[in-house]
Design a protein around this nucleic acid. Structure first.
Length: 362
DNA sequence: CACACGTGGAT
DNA sequence: TATCCAAGTGT
């Protein structure tokens, strides 16, 4: 007997589960709040969705609160200094998101009177908003019946229908299935419910199928091991790249920093001088690659894993007079390094040269 | 379609 | 330790 779920049954089942078991999140209007007349703030929903791209809820919470405190409205963010936005985003990763966040805020403030477009199409035309985020903001903030497909939903749907096509080829099929399931009533809650289900019940490993509202209808559970869905190709292994980083300190306990170019890896972020990061094992990562002459002391190496390569950086430290550096950067007190737009890899390098650089006592 | 693009937590 | 992966987007 075919127990495949029908569109008419899916939403009520899932929304009933969501009303009882939804997560409380800082940017979310819970069902009980909605009953009291609270409506979603599109600025908050957009901000959270951009931060949540490939990023855990846990990591996002503090950044979300910080950004709202610094820039309470989209006009505030549009008027902010680019550099301040990059400083506030430092540590969250995927820094193109921060650059696009600022551009998007400027576009909304300048071209849309400070109001986000309320359609998928309008939203998707903005920087940093793609298929997923456009659908999510349209559904959650504007109650549009849009098909929201993220990693969680892909997992839920792939199991519900035991989809054998591997990702990402299966995405169009999955989007069609989600579109068929999405209700006209509470489409935003439906989307959030699918994501909550994927995050808390239909998890990548050891899913809690006994607690799942879709359990009677899940094809993967009935015919196979749900854990094996979604199918996806194996990832390539990461090559190793080598480089050197030079931490120059002057007599007043300040460090020489530079700003990276606006595009590419860590674009627009702050760094210490260093070599290019080469895949060549014979690249010069020795003190000979120094950016300026000094009595460089070998501080050992640090490792950092990026999305598509692993980096091993040789770190050097020296006491340097201000006049001996170039003029492509600036001197920053060690005590204020924490507030700089330093990506994690640079904080690691500096901490290797100055172990207490980021300690609270400073 | 394939690849570039960060980081930290879980197993 | 190795691997996966978390509310993806841009090119």
């Amino acid at each position: 007997m075919d127990n495949t779920i029908t569109a008419a049954k899916a939403a009520p089942l899932l929304l009933e589960w969501y009303d009882r078991h939804h997560r409380e999140l800082p940017w979310r209007v819970s069902p009980s709040m909605a009953r009291q007349g609270v409506v979603a703030n599109p600025y908050h929903i957009w901000m959270s969705e951009v931060m949540l791209q490939q990023t855990t809820v846990q990591a996002v919470k503090a950044y979300f609160e910080k950004f709202l405190a610094l820039w309470p409205s989209v006009e505030d963010l549009a008027a902010a200094d680019n550099e301040d936005v990059m400083k506030a985003w430092a540590g969250l990763g995927y820094y193109a998101r921060a650059r696009n966040l600022k551009k998007c805020a400027e576009a909304v403030a300048r071209n849309h009177g400070g109001h986000f477009p309320d359609t998928e199409e309008g939203l998707k035309a903005l920087p940093g908003i793609g298929d997923y985020t456009a659908a999510a903001v349209a559904a959650i903030a504007f109650n549009r019946q849009s098909a929201v497909l993220d990693g969680n939903v892909e997992r839920v749907v792939s199991r519900l229908y035991a989809i054998e096509t591997p990702l990402p080829a299966a995405k169009p099929e999955m989007r069609g299935l989600v579109a068929a399931l999405t209700p006209a009533d509470r489409p935003g809650d439906f989307a959030q419910a699918m994501m909550d289900l994927g995050a808390t019940i239909c998890t990548p490993k050891r899913p809690a199928c006994s607690l799942c509202p879709f359990r009677p209808h899940c094809l993967a559970l009935s015919v196979a091991d749900p854990e094996t869905f979604p199918r996806k190709a194996k990832k390539k292994d990461k090559p190793l790249r080598l480089g050197a980083a030079f931490v120059a300190i002057d007599a007043r306990d300040t460090v020489y920093l530079r700003k990276r170019g606006e595009t590419g890896l860590l674009g627009g972020m702050t760094e210490v001088p260093g070599t290019a990061w080469t895949a060549r094992q014979d690249g010069d990562t020795s003190v000979a690659a120094q950016p300026f002459a000094a009595a460089w002391e070998d501080c050992g190496t640090i490792s950092h894993v990026f999305t598509h390569f692993e980096l091993r950086l040789s770190v050097y430290r020296a006491n340097v007079a201000r006049a001996e550096t170039g003029d492509d950067g600036w001197w920053e007190p060690v005590s204020s390094l924490k507030a700089q737009a330093l990506p994690t890899v640079m904080k690691k390098a500096i901490a290797q040269a100055i172990p207490d650089a980021f300690k609270a006592e400073r």
